[in-house]
């Protein structure tokens, strides 16, 4: 294994994050605060408790998931797209570093960033609502798995994208709606039966549900289903990444 190579990519990518540290941290904190003001205080005060969890606390896991998913896809997508776009990718492609190591470097950095942001949101939300996490280890495990698998998705996107519009389109048109419709801000049990069944097709539902279970012990779907879903999703992404490197898809001529 080329550990120095993996570390070099990881450090370089994290450098991008820390160069704009203010922006990296301030914007999720501000948007979290806004969500709490709007959903938690304004709407939440008129909402009943959901499954005996105060509404303000109920939305915390969904909010973290929303940001982690968006950030993972965006960071990983940009991380590999940018070198491709400006041409510095030549160096990575000519270095003694395997595809697996390249993926670990880029995806690892993207996942690290989004997890950091997720934890920042968690801490921020403690200023607004009171809650405790009943399965902290599982919560972290969910966070890691989600960040990694959606960073993989972002990586695929970054390699596939031919321009910035394509790069931004998928997070905007696919990821964000899936998160909003995946029970981030409500329990799917509140929906009519037909829409409940439709929601079950949404992979993000399983993530949010499992993540929320690690907080409060309540979930829309069984925790096993959540775990299975995330592994299947990660597996599919890994398969696509493997195919990309085997064929050199949009990387090598």
């Amino acid at each position: 294994m080329n550990w120095y190579g993996i570390a070099a990519i990881w450090r370089f990518e994290m450098g991008r994050f820390f160069r704009s540290i203010l922006q990296s941290i301030v914007s999720p904190v501000v948007s979290t605060a806004l969500y709490f003001v709007v959903f938690g205080a304004a709407i939440g005060s008129r909402m009943p408790e959901i499954e005996s969890v105060d509404y303000g606390a109920f939305i915390v896991p969904g909010l973290i998931m929303l940001t982690v998913l968006q950030q993972s896809v965006q960071n990983a997508g940009f991380g590999i797209y940018f070198p491709k776009f400006i041409g510095t990718i030549y160096e990575v492609l000519s270095a003694p570093i395997s595809s697996l190591e390249i993926v670990i470097g880029y995806v690892g950095a993207a996942a690290t960033k989004s997890m950091l942001i997720g934890l920042i949101i968690l801490v921020t939300s403690l200023f607004f609502v009171d809650f405790s996490i009943i399965h902290p280890v599982l919560m972290l495990a969910f966070l890691v798995l989600t960040a990694v698998s959606f960073s993989l998705l972002g990586f695929i996107l970054g390699i596939w994208a031919r321009n910035f519009e394509q790069l931004n389109l998928v997070p905007l048109l696919v990821v964000t709606p899936l998160v909003f419709l995946g029970g981030s801000f409500y329990s799917v049990s509140m929906l009519p039966p037909f829409w409940q069944n439709v929601s079950l097709l949404n992979p993000v539902l399983y993530l949010v549900s499992g993540f929320r279970w690690s907080f409060f012990g309540t979930a829309d779907v069984p925790i096993v289903a959540s775990l299975a879903a995330i592994f299947v999703f990660a597996g599919i992404c890994l398969g696509i990444v493997w195919w990309i490197f085997r064929t050199g898809f949009r990387l090598k001529s």
Binding site: N2, Y4, A8, E91, A95
Partner: peptide, 10 residues
């Protein structure tokens, strides 16, 4: 430094 690391050198 990035180039050096990428090529597996400390």
């Amino acid at each position: 430094r990035f180039s050096r690391g990428l090529f597996g050198k400390p």
